[in-house]
C-alpha cells in the first residue's frame, strides 16, 4: 500500500456564492502521476489551486474542508511554506521576463532572498535544467532572457524553476494546452522521469494525455469528484455512467 501525500477531506471551494468544488474527498499517493480530467468549468483547476493555497489569492474566493499535506492541514501552515513544498506550473509558460534563463531557474531562491554559494547555484541550475531535459539546449545561452526561448522550452524552464525548489508535490495546470504537439510530447516524457522523485498532479482536459501519462486518474464533473481510480481501470472499466459518457465522448 503506497503512502498518501495529499489528502482532501470534504473540500469545497467557492467564488463568492458560486460553489465550484463540491465535497471532494481524495487520497493522492506519493511518487505517482495523477491526472485530473473533466470538461471545462468542472472545478479541476480550482481544486488544484486549492492544494497550494493559490485559490485564496483571487478576490472573493473561499474554501471549506481540509487539504492535508503529509497529514497537516495546509490552512494551518503559512501559505509561503505550503507553496515551497508544493510547486506549480501554469497553463501558459510564465518565466520572469526580466531574468536570464539561469536566474529564472534559481528564482525561487534569488527572489526569496535566500543566498547560496555560486557553486551551489550552478549545481541547482544544471541539475534542474537536466531534469527537464533542457540543459543541452540552453547551456550556452544561460545569460539570455527566459522569454528568448520557444514556448515549449519556456514551459520546461518553468518546470525547472519549480523543480529547483525541491518540492514534494508538483501541480500542473493544463501544462501543455498552449504548446505544439512536439513540445507537448517532450513535456509528457518528463512526467515519467519526474514522478520518480515527486508527486505529480496534472490537470488536463485531454483524455489521451491523462491516459498516456498518469498512474491514477480523477474525473471531475460539475464540481464533484465522480471517480478516482487507476488510469487503466478508469479507461477500460469506468464505474460511473458519467465517466463512461465522458471518455466515450458523449459530452465534453
Amino acid at each position: 500500500m503506497e503512502s498518501t501525500i495529499v489528502k482532501a477531506v470534504n473540500y469545497n471551494s467557492y467564488f463568492g456564492a458560486n460553489h465550484v468544488v463540491k465535497d471532494v474527498n481524495i487520497e493522492i499517493p506519493k511518487n505517482a502521476a495523477i491526472a485530473v480530467m473533466g470538461p471545462s468549468g468542472c472545478g479541476k483547476t480550482t481544486f488544484l489551486r486549492g492544494i497550494n493555497r493559490m485559490h485564496e489569492l483571487i478576490p472573493g474566493a473561499t474554501a471549506k474542508g481540509q487539504i492535508l499535506l503529509n497529514g497537516t492541514d495546509v490552512m494551518e501552515m503559512h501559505p509561503i511554506f505550503v507553496r515551497l513544498k508544493i510547486g506549480m506550473v501554469f497553463q501558459r509558460p510564465n518565466p520572469f521576463p526580466n531574468l536570464s534563463i539561469y536566474d529564472n531557474v534559481i528564482a525561487g531562491y534569488k527572489l526569496n532572498g535566500i543566498s547560496l554559494p555560486k557553486s551551489e547555484r550552478d549545481r541547482i541550475v544544471e541539475h534542474s535544467l537536466s531534469r527537464v531535459a533542457l540543459w543541452g539546449e540552453v547551456k550556452d545561452s544561460l545569460t539570455k532572457k527566459g522569454t528568448f526561448l520557444s514556448g515549449g522550452q519556456q514551459q520546461r524552464l518553468c518546470i525547472a524553476r519549480a523543480v529547483a525548489m525541491e518540492p514534494e508535490v508538483l501541480l500542473f495546470d493544463e501544462p501543455t494546452s498552449a504548446l505544439d504537439p512536439i513540445s507537448t510530447s517532450k513535456v509528457e516524457e518528463l512526467f515519467h522521469e519526474l514522478k520518480k522523485n515527486y508527486t505529480l498532479i496534472i490537470v488536463t482536459h485531454n483524455m489521451q494525455q491523462a491516459a498516456r501519462v498518469s498512474d491514477k486518474t480523477a474525473f471531475f464533473y460539475m464540481g464533484e469528484l465522480v471517480e478516482f481510480d487507476d488510469t487503466k481501470n478508469m479507461f477500460t472499466n469506468p464505474k460511473d455512467t458519467r465517466t463512461q459518457n465522458y471518455i466515450t465522448g458523449r459530452f465534453s
Binding site: F81, L84, F90, F96, G108, N112, A162
Partner: peptide, 18 residues
C-alpha cells in the same frame, strides 16, 4: 503586467512584498 507573472512569484513561495 499579466497576472500570470504575479502567480509565478506566489507559486514559488514569495511573500507579497517580494
Amino acid at each position: 503586467l499579466p497576472d500570470s507573472l504575479r502567480e509565478a512569484g506566489y507559486a514559488l513561495g514569495m511573500p507579497f512584498h517580494r
